[in-house]
Simulated assay, not measured.
Amino acid sequence: MSVKKYLLTTLCSVISYGAFAQSDITENEIAAHISFLASKKMAGRFPGTRENKKTVDYLIKNFRRAGIKPFGSSYIQEFSAKIRVKKGVTDTPIVKTQNVIAFIEGNDPALKQEYIVLGAHYDHLGMGGPSSKKPDTVGVHLGADDNASGTAALLEIAEKLQANKKDLKRSVLLIAFGAEEQGLLGSKYFVEHPVIPLSTIKLMMNMDMVGRMNGEKNLYMGGAASFNGGMELMNSLGPQIGIKPIVIAYDVGGSDHVSFFKKNISVLGFHTGGHPQYHTPEDDFAHINVPGEKLVCDYIYKAIFSVANREGAVSFIPEKK
């Protein structure tokens, strides 16, 4: 489908979306979320900016629309983020930003006290800066794949989980992390200031750059051996969805799930691979494989349901070195 046609269907989706929240994962809603989050008017979703606040408001609005409650009295967990600067610069800004946390309670009297965390970071690089692959270019770094794609997946999977929550045994915590690009700051803050005991988190699943599935329909994931039965489960789900998962035992990578892994929590870090547009202004909606992202969402949804409804324990397995 052409980009023009996607944008047209996206507009139709946005217009109709206000009337009801769909109970299934759809390409139109994925496209609507990414095209909004990665638009020029969102200015790269930089921490501490007006556009960061707009993104937080957008996330909360979509959680509310789907009937997904906050954990406690507020969706927002505020923290201070130290902004990365170029080498030699001593004036380091500190800004206020937020994690956005929502909650779907399980139904098993005992197992609902255990949690699966599904996360994605929503921030990006703003106008560029030291983390840009074009550090001398001042221009909006749109961040369509990194990580509007993961944020869209979080919203879509959350919506379907909410629609089917009566079948969930364990509870699910949904976290959109702020300031990941500044050094995993949102997830670091969360694990140091958790809203639930860390011991109750049985698996953290993180989506960072899931919008560029290749022609072989590969989905990469690290950490599958960090919980019992993980390798077997993640391999078995591929044929059900029609993708070829690249299931990696550990090699947990450099995104927000690392903060959880360092606390001895099992993790899965999902991505669809690197590309030349990474951390440049060219990471735009036109490069997103929307049908591929829907497959990613379907796969992760099945994985969550499988782990959330497992009768036996979900146990952390440390890497042997």
Rank of each mutant, 00 (worst) to 15 (best):
A81P: 03
K165M: 11
V314L: 07
K4P: 00
A102V: 04
M213P: 02
E192D: 14
L219Q: 02
F46S: 09
A32D: 10
M205I: 15
L37G: 04
I196G: 05
T280H: 04
I300H: 02
P318S: 12
S236P: 01
E293P: 01
Y220N: 10
A158C: 03
P194N: 09
L174Y: 05
Y299F: 14
N235V: 00
D24N: 12
R212Y: 13
H287R: 15
S16K: 13
I300W: 03
L59H: 12
T55F: 06
A31Y: 07
D91P: 04
L142M: 11
V258Q: 00
V195L: 15
D284V: 09
L173H: 06
D256C: 01
V140Y: 01
I101W: 06
H257G: 00
S35G: 07
F79V: 05
S149N: 11
G211C: 08
I304A: 11
G230H: 03
S226R: 00
L37K: 06
N206D: 08
T49F: 04
V56K: 06
N52L: 09
P291G: 04
H279T: 10
R310Y: 02
L154V: 04
F63L: 12
Y17M: 12
K54W: 15
G128V: 09
I243C: 00
T90E: 12
P93K: 05
S132F: 09
I300S: 05
N264A: 13
Y17L: 14
D167N: 14
D91L: 12
K263P: 05
L8S: 14
A43N: 11
G223T: 03
F46D: 10
P93M: 07
Y58R: 06
T200G: 05
M231K: 10
D136W: 10
E192I: 05
K40E: 15
P194R: 04
L237T: 07
